[in-house]
C-alpha cells in the first residue's frame, strides 16, 4: 500500500462511528459571530489609522493632492534614497528630488542593496490594523516588500475593510497574499518586544482619500 492508501484507509477505519450517509453539511457550523466589530457609524479609516499606529508603524493621512508631498516627507524622514519600485506603480506619484527608483524585475541581491520599497496595497483591515498585499499592480513580487529594511505602503481609503471577514471575501485566494500588521517583531527574548527581525524594521503607511489606482 502507498502512504496515501494507508492514511486514507486508517482515516476511514477511525471514522467508523460516522454514519455513511452523513454529509459534511450535516455537521452544523453555527456562524453567530459578527461580520464586523466596528460600531455603527464608526469612522473606519480613522480606526484603521489608529490600529496601524498601535503596532508602532508611522501613519499619515492625506488626499490625492497631498500624496506626493507625503511620500517625499516619509522618505526624507526615514533617510531612504534608493528604492525598489514595483511594476504598475503610478509614476506621477513619485516625488522629484534625489531619489533613485529601481524598477522591477529586481533579483534578491539587488533588493538587498536598496534602502526600501514603495508599494500600494490591495486591502486594509480596520479592526486589526492590517494591510494586505496580493502582488497585483503597484505591489511588487513578495520579495520586494520583504528584503529591503523599509516599507512605505500607500493604501487607498476605499480599500479599507471593516474587519477580517469582509477583507477575506474581497481577496483572490489564487494570488499569493501577505497580511502585514506592523513591522516584524519578536518577543522571544524574555518576552521583551523587539521590532524588526527579518522583515522590514520600519513600516510607514500613507492613507489616501479618496483612492488611487495603479497604472494598468
Amino acid at each position: 500500500m502507498t502512504g496515501r492508501e494507508t492514511v486514507l484507509a486508517r482515516i476511514r477505519a477511525a471514522l467508523a462511528d460516522v454514519p455513511s450517509e452523513e454529509r459534511p453539511d450535516d455537521v452544523p457550523v453555527p456562524r453567530d459571530y459578527h461580520r464586523s466589530h466596528t460600531g455603527p457609524g464608526q469612522d473606519t479609516v480613522a480606526l484603521f489609522a489608529e490600529r496601524v499606529a498601535d503596532y508602532r508603524a508611522t501613519v499619515t493621512r492625506t488626499d490625492r493632492a497631498g500624496l506626493r508631498d507625503a511620500i517625499a516627507a516619509a522618505l526624507t524622514r526615514h533617510g531612504a534614497r534608493r528604492l525598489a519600485l514595483p511594476s504598475g506603480f503610478p509614476d506621477e506619484l513619485l516625488p522629484s528630488g534625489g531619489w533613485e527608483w529601481h524598477a522591477e524585475p529586481l533579483g534578491v541581491p539587488a533588493l538587498d542593496g536598496l534602502d526600501g520599497a514603495i508599494t500600494l496595497a490591495c486591502a486594509g483591515i480596520a479592526i486589526t490594523g492590517t494591510i494586505v498585499l496580493d502582488t497585483g499592480p503597484g505591489q511588487g513580487r513578495r520579495a520586494l516588500t520583504l528584503v529591503p529594511d523599509y516599507h512605505l505602503c500607500i493604501v487607498g481609503a476605499e480599500l479599507i475593510a471593516d474587519d477580517i471577514p469582509e477583507a477575506l471575501a474581497r481577496l483572490d485566494p489564487t494570488r499569493p497574499l501577505t497580511f502585514v500588521s506592523g513591522p516584524s517583531a519578536t518577543s522571544d527574548i524574555e518576552l521583551d518586544r523587539v521590532e524588526g527581525v527579518h522583515g522590514p524594521r520600519t513600516l510607514d503607511v500613507i492613507i489616501v482619500d479618496p483612492g488611487i489606482s495603479p497604472q494598468s
Partner: peptide, 21 residues
C-alpha cells in the same frame, strides 16, 4: 497566541505562482 489583534505577518499561498516565490 501572542495576545495581539493580528500577528505581524500572515502568508497565504496556493500552489505556485509563475515569476514569484
Amino acid at each position: 497566541s501572542t495576545g495581539e489583534r493580528m500577528n505581524p505577518y500572515t502568508s497565504l499561498w496556493t500552489g505556485t505562482t509563475p515569476g514569484d516565490g
